[in-house]
């Protein structure tokens, strides 16, 4: 099973570089890494997905060593919402391909967000496997380009990652309210 970590980091120049450099140096295999702003100007948020052979506890402990990393949460086993967004440009010259694409979009609750006489851009959000299946169905139609944001994840309900309660990376026993081991 893949592991997912969510990290709050200081919104400062070079932080993404520090995180990427850490993964390379420690030989952590990362599937996907997304970064974006949050509702707080000084905080950015990362979602890090790694393969089953990479220990999420090790990644978490090493992330905490970075001065700019505020809080890390392993959401793998938590009820959570995970979303990937894809834009897929397809060729739709013939009328029947057009309706074929529309049909597929309906099944996947995807939307056409741009249409030209010869092309269309399909927008879809969802879990990764849903997007993968959509891509498979559109492939025979003729995909011109694809772009995906990578997965972003958020735990459900009252489980809030706000950067206020530090979690201990020690022993992988999260949430005991202890200071983190940032070094």
């Amino acid at each position: 099973m893949k592991h997912t970590l969510v990290a709050l980091v200081e919104n400062k120049p070079g932080v993404l570089n520090r995180v990427a450099s850490l993964f390379r140096r420690r030989n952590f295999n990362i599937d996907s890494l997304t970064v974006g702003r949050t509702h707080r100007d000084d905080v950015s948020r990362m979602t890090i997905v790694m393969d089953e052979n990479t220990s999420p506890a090790k990644v978490e402990q090493n992330l905490y060593k970075l001065v700019n990393v505020i809080q890390v949460d392993n959401v793998t086993m938590k009820p959570s919402v995970a979303r990937d967004l894809a834009l897929i440009k397809v060729r739709v010259e013939a009328a029947e391909t057009r309706s074929q694409v529309l049909q597929v979009c309906e099944i996947f609750r995807a939307r056409i967000v741009d249409a030209s006489p010869t092309t269309a851009i399909v927008e879809v959000t969802g879990a990764e496997d849903k997007i993968a299946s959509l891509i498979e169905l559109l492939r025979p139609v003729g995909i011109l380009e694809t772009v995906r944001t990578g997965v972003v994840t958020m735990a459900r309900g009252e489980d809030v990652l706000d950067g206020n309660g530090y979690k201990s990376p020690g022993n992988g026993s999260s949430s005991n309210g202890k200071h983190n081991g940032a070094l």
Partner: peptide, 18 residues
Amino acid sequence: DIDASEIHKNVHADLGIV
């Protein structure tokens, strides 16, 4: 050890105290 990433890094600890 004061550095959590050292616990279990090379040798598994039955008890790791950060």
